Amino acid sequence: KSPLTGYVRFMNERREQLRAKRPEVPFPEITRMLGNEWSKLPPEEKQRYLDEADRDKERYMKELEQY
């Protein structure tokens, strides 16, 4: 499975939280809201997602080498 970027990891995590709080909001609007939230997120909060993405990318590269 391909590695996910930090942005995609953030979107996946927050999308479920936002949909639970506001189920009436259409999917494209949720994506737009989360995109704005990501762009305003402080670098230190973004870093968690970026670090997870880096670890996932390393895992993926190792799997490719073994293939």
Rank of each mutant, 00 (worst) to 15 (best):
G6S: 04
R14T: 04
N36D: 07
P26Y: 01
Q47D: 01
K62Q: 10
E16Q: 10
R22V: 08
E65G: 11
A20N: 11
V8M: 15
R55V: 12
T5S: 13
E65N: 12
K21S: 14
R22T: 14
A20R: 11
R22N: 15
E45K: 11
A20Y: 00
K57H: 15
E24W: 04
K57I: 05
P28V: 13
I30S: 05
R15Y: 07
R55F: 08
P42R: 05
M61L: 12
E44L: 07
P26I: 01
M61T: 10
D56K: 08
M61A: 13
R55G: 11
D54A: 12
R32P: 05
Y49C: 00
K46W: 00
D54L: 13
E58Q: 09
E13N: 02
T31M: 08
L41P: 01
T5K: 10
R32C: 01
R55P: 11
E63T: 10
N12Q: 13
S2W: 02
L4D: 15
Q47Y: 08
E45L: 04
A20E: 10
A53G: 14
P23C: 02
N12F: 05
P43R: 12
E63W: 03
P3V: 10
P42A: 09
R15G: 12
D51Y: 15
K21A: 13
V8N: 13
T31K: 08
K21Y: 04
R48W: 03
T5Y: 06
M33K: 12
E16M: 02
E65W: 04
L50R: 10
E29N: 01
E13Y: 00
Q47W: 03
F27A: 15
S2T: 14
L4R: 08
R9D: 01
L50N: 15
M11Q: 04
E63L: 03
K1I: 13
P42K: 02
E44M: 07
T5N: 08
Y7Q: 13
R32N: 06
L41Y: 00
P3I: 06
P43K: 05
A53P: 09
D54T: 12
E65D: 14
L4M: 08
L4S: 13
E65P: 07
D54N: 10
P43L: 04
K62L: 05
E45S: 04
L64A: 13
K1P: 00
R15I: 13
E29G: 02
Y60V: 12
K21V: 12
R15M: 09
P23R: 02
R55A: 11
P23F: 01
T31V: 06
M61E: 13
R14H: 04
E16P: 08
L41D: 00
K21T: 13
E63S: 12
V25K: 09
P23D: 01
A53W: 01
Y49R: 05
R59E: 13
K57F: 03
D54M: 12
R22E: 14
R48N: 04
F27W: 15
K62N: 14
F10G: 05
T5L: 12
L50F: 11
E44I: 05
T31N: 13
E63P: 09
K57D: 12
K1W: 04
R9I: 09
E29A: 04
K46T: 01
E24D: 12
R19T: 11
F27S: 15
P42E: 00
V25E: 06
R22G: 12
Y7F: 10
R32T: 08
A20L: 11
Y60G: 14
P3L: 13
P3K: 10
P42H: 02
E65V: 10
F10S: 04
M11E: 12
T5W: 02
K57E: 13
P3E: 14
E13A: 06
K57M: 10
E58D: 08
A53M: 02
Y49K: 03
E45D: 05
P28S: 14
S2K: 04
R19F: 08
R32V: 08
F10E: 06
E44P: 06
N12S: 09
R59V: 13
R55M: 11
E45W: 00
Q17M: 10
R59W: 03
R48S: 08
E13I: 10
L4T: 13
K46G: 01
M61V: 13
R59I: 12
E13T: 06
D56M: 03
P43E: 08
D51E: 05
F10T: 02
R9K: 08
E24H: 04
E16H: 03
R59T: 12
M61W: 08
E24V: 05
R15A: 12
Y49V: 04
D56H: 06
R15Q: 12
T31L: 04
L50S: 15
K57S: 11
E16R: 06
K57V: 06
P26C: 03
E29Y: 01
K1C: 00
P26W: 00
Q66C: 09
Q17W: 06
R48K: 13
K46H: 00
S2P: 05
L64F: 15
R59M: 10
